[in-house]
Design a protein around this nucleic acid. Sequence first.
DNA 1: CGGCCATCCTGCACGC
DNA 2: TGCGTGCAGGATGGCC
Length: 265
Amino acid sequence: MPELPEVETVVRGLQSTIVGESIADLEVPWEKSLVANDPYESIVGKLITYVHRRAKYIVIQFDIGALVVHLRMTGKLTPVFPEKHVTVILHFESGRTLYFQDTRKFGRMEYTDNPEELLEHIGPEPLSDQFTTQVFYKMLTGKNRLIKPLLLDQSFLAGLGNIYVDEALFQAGIQPLSIASSIPKERSIRLHSAIQSILAESIKAQGTTVLNYSHGDNQSGTYQAALQVYGRKDQPCLVCDTPIIKIKMGQRGTHYCAQCQKLYK
DNA sequence: CGGCCATCCTGCACGC
DNA sequence: TGCGTGCAGGATGGCC
């Protein structure tokens, strides 16, 4: 499941492979994966000028307009022909090809003239200079919401998904069922620090590989080796040996150590 | 406002 | 072996 570090890894790969390419042709084997008023007219003939990431979105910027891509759970962008589940194909003038492969077909590519407008509802980037401990504490105060769903809310904070939220809350010693506004300042600083260090470390490791997720050309990230609670149901906590608990919050599997993580109500 | 549920999809791990 | 069931989940939209 690509979260911020996995998407960042994909974007870095694309920056060195598709910038400067022009789109010669387009195929859409799965219509719902490409959102555009007139796909062929919007995309074919465009030049890719740069690629960047915003939250979990990949923005493929054209000379005019952009393709905004969300991989959701199983989406991949690959130059290598995948046998199955190809949803969109971009053919370049160079003769090379980029395949959007997406097993569960939740991922989307959307053409837009104005990508900033499309993404304006997204919250701050957790690795930006603007996201300070002070700013984060202010964001939490007054939020009468459970901390886990709040951190998953992309309009609150960009880029975190189910895995890294569980990891960050463990590292900060906060139970996922805690109320955001009840978290003391000292703990919010730990949470801020946990979010930043986990994301930075995972980017260094080129992300986490779980289930069938891989990026680029069949490579895999290695951050899964560093996971402390995610996927460790009933296994001993790495700090205190208490078995890790797994509950459901919303529809998300949620892992935590009831001993190490404090509940703020 | 906030929490919960269904929706979209397929593959895989179960139990019988 | 094979079939049915449940689970995995990001974002959105509807409901209470």
